[in-house]
Amino acid sequence: MDLENQSRIKALTEEHGAENLIVVFGAAEGELTGLAAETVTVGDPTYAGSLTNVELGLGVYHAVEPTFKEAVDPQVYEDQIGMMEMVLDVDDIVGEITTIREENSKYNK
């Protein structure tokens, strides 16, 4: 994940508390989703950013997950994400993010 984004997430978690935060990703592939989700739960797997060895344990979701989709306005979802739901490999992404959330998220799962 982008180094600047890691720093921002770290600071925001300190400010608002991990229990109050949810991270939603829009990554194009399962693998990338997994890496990003890992970064904000157990730390940056690439050892490059400020979240290296930092276990934030944040709740992580991807925009194409059914649980997330159910929580938002269906028309807005259709307008904003409907097409990408058709384009992306939803099963792959849902598989990756669910595994990381179940194993590594400490909050909001």
């Binding site: 994940m1 984004n5 997430i9 925001l12 608002h16 109050n20 935060l21 949810i22 991270v23 939603v24 990703f25 829009g26 990554a27 194009a28 592939e29 990338l32 990003a36 904000v40 944040l58 709740g59 925009a63 194409v64 997330f68 159910e70 929580a71 938002v72 306005d73 807005v76 979802y77 307008d79 904003q80 994400i81 990408m84 992306l88 909001n108 799962k109």
Partner: peptide, 28 residues
């Protein structure tokens, strides 16, 4: 729902779902 009354960090992808789209949706 677990999603209500939370603060959100949105990490979009230029070739997936961009941050601005995530924002529109989460705002609902």
């Amino acid at each position: 729902s677990i999603f209500e009354n939370k603060k959100y960090i949105l990490i979009g992808d230029r070739d997936g779902v961009p941050g601005e789209s995530l924002k529109e949706v989460v705002n609902t």
